[in-house]
Nucleic acid binder design. Structure first.
Length: 892
RNA sequence: GGGCGGGUAGCUCAGUUGGGAGAGCAUCGGCCUUACAAGCCGAGGGUCACAGGUUCAAGCCCUGUUCCGCCUACCA
């Protein structure tokens, strides 16, 4: 089953498996802690340990792998740090489901046993995503793989928590937070997804204390009224000035509520009166503090109504809403119900509607940290690419609110804080304290909450390298060179790494942030399980091979634009991989051991040309990769390989390879062919690592893995590589002649098997000489019997004509005459030229253009005019002659 | 409500200081030419969303309109 040079098509699977193991075994992904080369580092955005590889991972890690492999080939000492995230809530959910399948739950197990169960689960399933990354070809330094819950990283987490607490940047307090009843935990603002839904706006009448009419308030959540402790109006609102309007009766609960005055209330909305529920609404909470109102928590942490809800106690919050509405209706206090679109928060993990809830939580004071993170981007220590994301970053950072970091779940880093049972003192420490630091009491109870998962991932760039120890790794590889996140985690992760990195390391965590786009389905819709439009990268890899898939991702990764993925596209790039395979197959049929250095040899025109184009492709590709324009890099290489190397060079050298021009020339050409294939493989390797390695190993004169190659060999700047512009111009002429002849053949429907007689006329001696010198190439590629070159003179008869710059090509139609067709063809050409000429002539008649445009632009346009006119005139005179020869032939 | 991105060939998209509208796929015509039919050679196809403006010159810069998508937000 091994891929053999005799195989006509490339079979990726066996090749991929074989080479990936080889790379790992040879330690080719390993970074050196004491290498003297330039170091380059990337930390992987750690996928959730519960994750399966999706398109986002695939894109993201392909880009990183391209960068890492590219840098290695340039001679750098590369560290790509891999690992996974413990993903607190997500993992706990998964394991809970797992347990449910076994007929138990975490409460039956208890905390300690449950955490054991999670570790067990991780041992069994946790490396799935890692294996999938390997299928993708990711060249991570796997020996250094980390996990956000491993011992070292946990130490880092505690160290950071303690220091921030001591610096006063972590505090604990009673605030309104977002509460998910299903996950039974607080959520940070970021973890709430807002979604517009069709709801109702309920207008409820709160009678005045004296029993008269009353105030009408509006709410989308009537059940929260049970916890109201005031009604607020704007102090400027005339409607609520009279006496007797100082307080109202809360329906259903029969509590008396004060009518307070607060500028927050918008007089123009509804009746200008706002019910205040400090325990279940963030604004109401603020107002409550201002007016010293009590908070009554009527919705419990389980989503059921509390005892404070009176007779509604124990009802589910949504059921309670129905009941409250029913009751109000019965009492005639429900004025009206209006359909109302509003955005409702959902838990980003389980999509449950979250409830603003009053609760005691831990917070990171974000403003001081954010200030430094803003500055670092402003002064360019960290670049965000594409720059369009900078504004988004600044916006968020400037409006940052304190970060709620405590979670009421079990799986995660337990907060290193202890409460003294005797004096109530809170002790925060790296390790379990022996006694209370205030009273010396020995009964210390550890905080049961764990930290937000993002708290540990915020430390990822330095915690993975051994911090808080001063390791050689940190010294060599921090700050990292680039980070490659999706924009969806710009705030969750990138912003927080910036804050933590700068605060604890004194330097930014990465120099560049390359924010990649979203991979969508072929219709541009976001992929999601519920829509059923998810394309599984592993299926794609299975079907088309990793290389084809990677190249597709790269080819479509235009900055700032989402990628629409479809199988058809991958199929297209599989053709490219196959094309390379076959080109190599062809080359290797001839190369055997006949290659040599190309230095000092007298090379043919196609040889010089292809080497120059190779240099151009190398420059384009490397510049594009360095500036994260992966699509440009892929495009440049694609075009070079297919349309220059295969379509022209390989075709041009065939007669030489088949020995028609002697052994010396054959050997020289083989040496060039070897060189071009050799370098092309290296250039392509970052994109399509497997097939290039496979071919590399079949190429004589290479030793070991392509991953050990360095290119350019002297590690110099690509831009310094020399191009041979003269060869490019000459070959360009030859190609134009060939295309001109082929065009006639195609248009006139002349069979490719029919050899043609062609004569070319030119006044330009250099053109004549060039064509004469490379006659053999033209004869070969255009399928000619005879090619003659002369200076302009008598025009041949019975010919089809094609005009290129400086020369006219005549294809003899003797014996294959179809003058009708040629007449039509020439008329069409002439017509086209007239259209092209129109704007040019118009410009040159414009005095303003001639006067104001720069000289070189004017000259360009004038040249263009001359060129078009000349071409048109030549075609016209040939058309005239054909018509004169065949007067009876009209246009059919 | 605020902000951002996009509208270029039938489809998917490039188009980097304003100066000749491009690619891939699809379509049409011709080829089994000894690396590749997953291929080769050739052809057709666009009022650059709409309307103004700046400029000698606009796909590109400015203003407005419209459609699509996304992010963000504590108007009940």
């Amino acid at each position: 089953m091994s891929s053999n040079l005799l195989d006509k098509g490339y079979e990726p699977h066996e090749v991929e498996k074989r080479w990936y193991s080889f790379w790992e075994e040879e330690g080719l992904f390993a970074a050196s802690e004491n290498g003297s080369q330039n170091s380059y580092s990337i930390v992987i955005p750690p996928p959730n340990v519960t994750g399966v590889l999706h398109m986002g991972h695939a894109l993201n890690n392909t880009m990183q792998d391209i960068l890492c492999r590219y840098k290695r080939l340039r001679g750098d000492n590369v560290l790509w740090m891999p690992g996974t995230d413990h993903a607190g809530i997500a993992t706990q959910n998964v394991v809970e489901k797992h347990l449910a399948g076994q007929g138990t739950d975490r409460h039956q197990l208890g905390r300690e046993k449950f955490i054991e169960a999670v570790w067990e689960w991780r041992k069994e399933y946790g490396s799935a995503i890692i294996n999938q990354l390997k299928h993708l070809g990711a060249s991570c330094d796997w020996d250094r793989e980390r996990f956000t819950m491993d011992e070292g990283l946990s130490t880092a987490v505690r160290k950071v928590f303690v220091q921030l607490y001591e610096e006063g940047l972590i505090y604990r307090g009673n605030y309104i937070i977002n509460w998910c009843h299903r996950c039974h935990t607080a959520l940070a603002d970021l973890e709430v997804e807002h979604e517009e839904i069709d709801g109702n706006l309920y207008y409820i009448r709160y009678p005045y204390a004296d029993g008269k009419d009353g105030v009408i308030v509006a709410t989308t959540r009537p059940e929260t009224m049970l916890g109201d402790t005031a009604v607020a109006v704007n102090p400027d609102d005339e409607r609520y000035r009279q006496t007797g309007k100082e307080s109202v009766i809360l329906p259903l609960m029969n509590r008396q509520l004060p009518v307070i005055k607060d500028k927050y209330v918008d007089m123009s909305f509804g009746t200008g009166a706002l019910k205040i529920t400090p325990a279940h609404d963030p604004n109401d909470f603020e107002i409550g503090i201002r007016h010293d109102l009590p908070s009554i928590k009527v919705i419990g942490d389980d989503g059921m109504m509390t005892a404070e809800a009176g007779k509604f106690k124990g009802l589910d919050r949504f059921k309670c809403r129905e009941e409250v509405v029913k009751e109000l209706e019965k009492e005639g206090l429900l004025e009206k119900i209006e359909p109302y679109k509003h955005s409702v928060g959902h838990c980003y993990r389980c999509k449950t509607v979250v409830e603003p809830n009053l609760s005691k939580q831990w917070f990171v004071s974000a403003k001081p940290l954010a200030a430094k993170a803003i500055a670092a981007v402003k002064d360019g220590r960290t670049r965000i690419i594409p720059a369009i994301w900078e504004n988004t970053y600044f916006d968020w950072m400037n409006n940052i609110r304190d970060w709620c970091i405590s979670r009421q779940i079990w799986w995660g880093h337990q907060i290193p804080a202890w409460t003294c049972e005797e004096c109530g003192e809170i002790v925060v420490a790296l390790n379990t304290p022996e006694k209370c630091s205030a009273c010396g009491g020995k009964k210390l109870i550890q905080e049961t909450d764990v930290l937000d998962t993002w708290f540990s991932s915020a430390l990822w760039p330095f915690s993975t390298m051994g911090w808080p120890d001063k390791t050689p790794l940190l010294k060599k590889f921090y700050p990292t060179d680039v980070l490659g996140p999706g924009f969806d985690i710009l705030f969750f992760w990138v912003a927080r790494m910036m804050m933590m990195g700068i605060h604890f390391m004194g330097d930014v965590p990465f120099k560049d942030v390359y924010v990649h786009a979203l991979v969508r389905d072929e219709k541009g819709k976001k992929m999601s399980k519920s829509k059923g439009n998810v394309i599984d990268p592993l299926t794609i890899i299975e079907k088309y091979g990793t290389d084809a898939f990677r190249f597709t991702l790269a080819a479509f990764a235009a900055q700032g634009r989402d990628i629409k993925m479809s199988e058809k596209r991958v199929e297209g790039y599989r053709h490219f991989v196959n094309k390379l395979w076959n080109a190599a197959r062809f080359a290797l049929m001839h190369i055997d051991n006949s290659y040599d250095s190309i230095e000092g040899h007298n090379l043919s025109l196609p040889d010089k040309w292809i080497l120059s184009r190779l240099n151009k492709a190398a420059i384009n590709a490397s510049e594009a990769i360095e500036s994260y324009r992966f699509n440009d890099a892929a495009g440049a290489l694609y075009k070079f390989v297919w349309h220059e190397f295969c379509d022209w060079y390989l075709e041009a050298i065939k007669p030489v390879l088949y020995g028609k021009e002697g052994e010396d020339k054959r050997k020289r050409t083989l040496s060039v062919l070897w060189r071009v294939l050799h370098d092309t493989l290296i250039l392509l390797h970052p994109f399509i690592p497997f097939v290039t390695e496979e071919i590399w190993n079949k190429l004589p004169g290479t030793e070991g893995s392509i991953m050990r190659a360095i290119f350019p060999p002297d590690n110099s700047d690509f831009a310094k590589t020399v191009r041979d512009l003269e060869a490019e111009a000459k070959m360009g002429l030859v190609m134009q002649v060939i295309t001109g002849i082929r065009n006639i053949r195609g248009e006139m429907n002349i069979s490719p098997s029919m050899s043609l007689d062609v004569s070319i006329q030119s006044d330009d001696g250099i053109i004549r000489e060039t064509i004469n010198q490379h006659k053999d190439i033209i004869v070969n590629l255009a399928g000619l019997e005879v090619l003659s070159v002369e200076s302009s003179g008598k025009k041949p008869e019975r010919v089809a004509t094609s005009v290129i710059e400086g020369a006219t090509i005549f294809v003899s139609l003797e014996g294959i005459i179809d003058f009708d067709r040629e007449t039509q063809r020439l008329e069409k050409e002439i017509n086209k030229l007239t259209n092209e000429l129109a704007p040019v002539l118009k410009k040159l008649k414009n005095e303003n253009f001639l006067g104001k445009a720069p000289e070189d632009v004017v000259k360009k346009v004038k040249d263009k005019k001359m060129q078009l006119l000349e071409k048109q005139q030549k075609l016209q005179s040939n058309l005239d002659r054909i018509k004169a020869l065949n007067p009876v032939q009209g246009s059919s």
